[in-house]
Amino acid sequence: MLIRFNKPYGVLSQFTPEGKWRGLKDFISLPGVYVAGRLDADSEGLLLLTDDGQLQARIADPRFKMEKTYLAQVEGVADAAALQALSQGVMLNDGLTLPAQARAVEPHAHLWERDPPIRERKAKPTSWIELTIREGRNRQVRRMTAAVGLPTLRLIRTHIGPYSVMDVPLGNWRETELT
């Protein structure tokens, strides 16, 4: 079984709540399913869960290089130089990232509102970047955008490999066919 869950902001990638963060048990009551990969509590979007240990390893293990696509709302304007730097790989404190696919986008028309909303500053514009990576370093997308001068304000994972979250309402899950 493979579950696609649209994780809201403020929810951990574990069933047990911790501190101010809610756990998956508030949304998913299926016995025997486990998270395949992580998504930080302050990020939103696609989280995959499965009852199949081998599938969980294939999804989560970086050796299989399953692409992950994110929408990042960043502070500042995503210009050609920043997108080029992201595309070539960015030097972080733990080394150079692999090249990524990066492009400026408009937010999707059916994108849900975040609760709580992001902070907006009148003097600083925001823009959106779609970023596809093949690694899974800790807080990698946030660190990459910050390294090119565009701090991430909101981060939404839209795809893991062939699996998408865009047809799953926020806070809901759907069982999906393996591809």
Rank of each mutant, 00 (worst) to 15 (best):
Leu150Asn: 11
Met66Asn: 13
Ser13Glu: 10
Lys65Val: 07
Thr97Arg: 01
Arg121Leu: 11
Ile160Met: 14
Lys65Met: 11
Asn138Ser: 10
Ala147Cys: 02
Ser87Asp: 04
Glu67Arg: 13
Met91Leu: 15
Thr50Val: 02
Ala60Trp: 06
Leu30His: 11
Gly53Glu: 11
Val90Gly: 02
Arg139Asp: 13
Leu46Arg: 06
Ser43Tyr: 09
Gly10Leu: 02
Ala147Phe: 10
Glu175Asp: 09
Arg103Pro: 07
Ser43Pro: 05
Asp40Val: 01
Glu75Arg: 10
Trp21Gly: 00
Ala72Met: 08
Gly95Leu: 11
Phe5Ile: 05
Lys124Gly: 06
Asp167Gln: 14
Gln88Arg: 14
Ala78Asp: 02
Ser127Pro: 01
Arg103Glu: 15
Pro8Cys: 01
Leu155Val: 10
Asp115Leu: 12
Leu170Phe: 03
Gln14Pro: 02
Arg4Ser: 13
Gly45Cys: 07
Gly10His: 03
Pro116Phe: 09
Pro151Cys: 04
Arg114Tyr: 09
Ile133Pro: 00
Val165Pro: 03
Leu2Asn: 06
Thr179Val: 09
Ser87Lys: 01
Val141Asn: 02
Trp112Ser: 13
Tyr70Ala: 02
Pro99Leu: 05
Gln73Arg: 15
Gly76Val: 07
Leu178Pro: 03
Asp52Leu: 01
Val168Cys: 12
Leu170Val: 01
Pro17Ser: 06
Arg114Asn: 10
Asp26Phe: 11
Thr50Ser: 13
Arg157Ser: 13
Arg157Met: 12
Val90Asp: 06
Gln84Gly: 11
Asp115Cys: 10
Asn138His: 14
Ser13Val: 06
Val33Ile: 15
Asp115Gly: 00
Gly171Phe: 04
Phe15Tyr: 09
Arg58Asn: 03
Ile133Gln: 02
Val77Leu: 08
Leu47Arg: 09
His108Pro: 12
Glu135Pro: 04
Pro162Gln: 14
Gln56His: 11
Arg139Val: 15
Asn138Phe: 14
Ala123Val: 13
Arg4Asp: 04
Val168Leu: 11
Ile118Gln: 04
His110Arg: 12
Leu150Ile: 15
Ala102Gln: 02
Val90Cys: 04
Tyr34Ala: 10
Val77Asp: 08
Asn172Cys: 12
Thr50Met: 08
Val141Asp: 00
